[in-house]
Design a protein around this nucleic acid. Structure first.
Length: 487
RNA sequence: GGCGCAUUCGUCUAGCGGUUUAGGACACCGCCCUCUCAAGGCGGAGAUCACGGGUUCGAAUCCCGUAUGCGCUACCA
């Protein structure tokens, strides 16, 4: 069924940032293309001059690049079907709309916005489908020429033939039937001369030889207009695949009000691109084999449009967090070190004070305890600076009256150590505990509190090795003074 | 209002007429491990498959209604 080399496209409108739903759409297009040895094209749909936002196209491209999705043809990397930005294609739309008008499949409309509104209000009040009444279709050739010559504001509309059934065959949804009577004579060319989505999209998809239109479900309702356009042009229709929407926890369409929707927001929060891509891939698709953890190339291998879901999917952050944890574990140490250095600077530390080796030990110690790279800093500040305060609950629970005396004994043992490794600390502590006639815990917990100020974290001896003997001893002594003063 | 789409554990999903006492994952709870917090292992709770009718020997799976949700209904995409 799939043509030799399918061509698909992601065609965002530059009105801001890349929405995670957009990322999902882009991803499915990408996966489908790669899976089938096809081409994935990026086209910027900037025909709405009112909504155009300066720099939005660049932001889109940047987010896409960050996500790791590469396009075979794009404004930055044009192929033979350019330009890839719609605002640069006006001549092309002009040519095509003329053909449509000549063939009677489109017509000039000079109706004022007021008349349109009135008409619509009336239809709505009568509980009818609000569609244009083809008023201007009855204009004579002379009248049209005259108005055009006079510079009367006008649009060009699609001339929908009523009384037909229009069928849309969708890969995800199967056959969907529409009654042509309720299909509006859609504006194709706006009064500012720019095409609407419907015209530009169909013309470009055809000219760019797009074989599969993979887009959000919000387009399903206007697909009959597109299908008609293909038919009127005498062009072969592409295959359609309408993707389910991404939803807020309350099942409404994913919106900014209820959380982050921009890819850059997730990037800035420390989510890994592999995790975000993995997560978003699972929102509306599954291979059916219980695998949930994927690298991009595995997604390519397993993806198919036939296994895309029909129902919308709630964007649930918990699973994303888990995926981030899983992907983070696979990240090469060098990359983690680089990331930690950035986070150190962000947190106000001087990253140059720490060697790569030092940081790699911290990372190793924290690996099971971090979901995000920044947690290698925020969750364990004691690796970078001595504790300034001590967790109250832990103090109450672990710091008893005889603790300072116990620590004195331990300090003796520690001081005698020469360049200690993990086991040396452990043995020293055990010896001290034995000589004191107490359990190891009586020493372990106060030491942890002393060196970290916290009650949780990596194995105590790992912490000690990382911060070093001198610092360990210094911190224990300091804690003795400070915590005793607190009591 | 009209048209369209959808509806399986809280969430993401498996399931495409019998192998299902509906499987997995995240989250949640418990146990084990253990110096803590995690991770990991094991286990638990959690879905009358929206509801009501059919079809069938047999339905989460097919058909029809209803309800609910969502989308579209723009000279926005």
């Amino acid at each position: 069924m799939i043509s030799e080399t399918p061509r698909v496209r992601f065609a965002p409108s530059p009105t801001g940032y890349l929405h995670v739903g957009g990322l999902r759409t882009a991803l499915y297009n990408y996966l489908f293309a790669k899976k089938n040895n096809g081409k994935c094209i990026l086209r910027i749909e900037d025909t709405d001059r009112n909504r155009y936002v300066e720099g939005a196209a660049e932001s889109l491209v940047e987010s896409l690049k960050w996500s790791g999705l590469e396009f075979d043809e794009s404004p930055q990397n044009p192929g033979e079907y350019g330009p890839y930005t719609q605002s640069e294609r006006n001549e092309i739309y002009d040519k095509h709309i003329k053909q449509l008008i000549e063939d009677g499949n489109a017509y000039y409309c000079f109706c004022t916005p007021e008349r349109i509104k009135e008409l619509r209000d009336k239809q709505y009040a009568a509980k009818e489908q609000p569609i244009y009444d083809k008023h201007c279709l009855n204009l004579s050739k002379e009248e049209i020429e005259e108005k055009l010559a006079a510079g009367t504001p006008h649009v060009v509309r699609l001339n929908v033939r009523h009384g037909d059934k229009i069928y849309v065959d969708d890969i995800v949804r199967g056959r969907v039937e529409f009654d042509s009577n309720i299909v509006d004579d859609q504006v194709l060319i706006k009064s500012d001369g720019y095409p609407t989505y419907h015209l530009a999209n169909v013309v470009d998809d055809h000219l760019m030889k797009i074989s599969h239109v993979i887009r959000g479900e919000e387009w399903l309702s206007s697909t009959p207009k597109h299908v008609l356009l293909y038919d009127y042009f005498g062009w072969e229709r592409p295959q359609f695949a309408h993707l389910p929407l991404l939803l807020n926890p309350d099942k409404t369409k994913l919106s900014k009000r209820q959380g982050d929707v921009a890819v850059e927001d997730y990037r800035d929060k420390g989510y890994l691109r592999d995790a975000l891509v993995n997560f978003v891939a699972l929102l509306g698709w599954s291979a059916g084999d219980n695998q949930e953890f994927y690298k991009l190339d595995e997604l390519v291998e397993k993806f198919s449009l036939e296994r895309v879901h029909k129902a919308g999917a709630v964007f649930n952050i918990d699973k994303l967090n888990w995926l981030n944890f899983e992907h983070l574990r696979l990240m090469p140490v060098e990359d983690k070190i680089e990331g930690v250095r950035k986070e150190l600077d962000k947190a106000g530390y001087d990253n140059t004070k720490f060697s790569d080796e030092y940081l790699s030990h911290v990372i190793e110690a924290m690996v099971e305890r971090v979901n995000f790279i920044h947690e290698n800093v925020t969750n364990c500040p004691y690796f970078y600076t001595p504790p300034t305060e001590y967790d109250e609950k832990a103090v109450a629970k672990r710091w008893k009256e005889d603790t300072p005396a116990h620590l004195d004994k331990l300090l003796e043992k520690f001081e005698a150590l020469d360049n200690p490794v993990k086991e040396a600390y452990e043995n020293a502590l055990k010896e001290a505990a034995e000589e004191l006639g107490v359990g190891n815990g009586k020493l372990i917990h106060p030491v942890r509190l002393s060196v970290s100020g916290m009650s949780g974290g990596p194995g105590l001896y790992d912490i000690l090795v990382i911060i070093g003997k001198d610092e360990t001893i210094r911190r224990i002594k300091e804690a003795k003074v400070k915590i005793t003063a607190l009591k």
